[in-house]
Design a protein around this nucleic acid. Sequence first.
DNA 1: AGTCTAGAGACAACCTAGTTGCCAATCCAA
DNA 2: TTGGATTGGCAACTAGGTTGTCTCTAGACT
Lengths: 157, 157
Amino acid sequence: MARSGADLALLLLGGFRALADAASAELAERGHEKIRPVHDFAIRTIDAGADTASELARQLGVSKQAAAKTIGFLEERGYVSGQADPRDSRRRLLTVTDEGHALLRTGEEVFDDLRAQWAERIGVTELERLEEALSDLGIRIPTHFDAPGYFTNSPTE
Amino acid sequence: MARSGADLALLLLGGFRALADAASAELAERGHEKIRPVHDFAIRTIDAGADTASELARQLGVSKQAAAKTIGFLEERGYVSGQADPRDSRRRLLTVTDEGHALLRTGEEVFDDLRAQWAERIGVTELERLEEALSDLGIRIPTHFDAPGYFTNSPTE
DNA sequence: AGTCTAGAGACAACCTAGTTGCCAATCCAA
DNA sequence: TTGGATTGGCAACTAGGTTGTCTCTAGACT
């Protein structure tokens, strides 16, 4: 059956939302409330070396202020901590806490579990083929999400 | 190669964004500026019989006020027009204008063109297989988008 | 030294797409 | 006729982002 291009777009969006919503719900159950993929992404980026607000902003492709807000949230939750840089007093050096690393590990687990569930349903081969097809299309991993409320609103009502 | 669940999610999101961004850009070039998928969806729903703000809200799964704002935008642009209902003066009956129908047609064309481009790149068979796999996963077509700014921010900086 | 430029982070104001709470007008049924 | 339910609109709020402007500091150049 020849599907329409619009349906294809909605299938992709639906697939992503299914994963993201399930992951958010599962993370909440494991004690990480109100965590959205963007937070995981930010922590990962900080851990990889983006240890100031400005650097994080550049790497995530958002404004410094947006990055600062995200950092504020992450510090409040204890995933990230910031100390004054002794060598440059303009900077506040960011480090990922143990709690932050725990969140990253849990996040990976949750997503891998979800992927495994999909593999069970349609077969590993088919799933890998799907991933291969998307990769072959040159889909870039999005570096930022731009989606306030995108993951917060639970799909069940 | 065994990919991670997180990569799978990002591939799906990336795929959707690639289509949505390209479609928005193409629609803008064809004279429909600032149109996002949600507008297309709303017009379609009105056309299918959701002829009041409250009904549209219910069908899109958003609040009445959110629906009213969308309708305001669509009326301003001339895609939809509203007249007082002679039989129930609480209601404002919505109708899709010719301009609205034209937008729907153009939108379909644009998405179908994009899908055809994908088919060229990875082959029709592979693309249909991808769609089949997502369908088999029971992906529900999302009825609302929840993504303010999602499509507005052009990816090309 | 002194000055000049550039970067870091913070503040205020604004935008957009939603939300809830409330309210007047209207319809309809008991 | 009266009371419950529905319509649409208003106000205030939230979340996540934006731009513009500001101060402080670092480093480079004279």
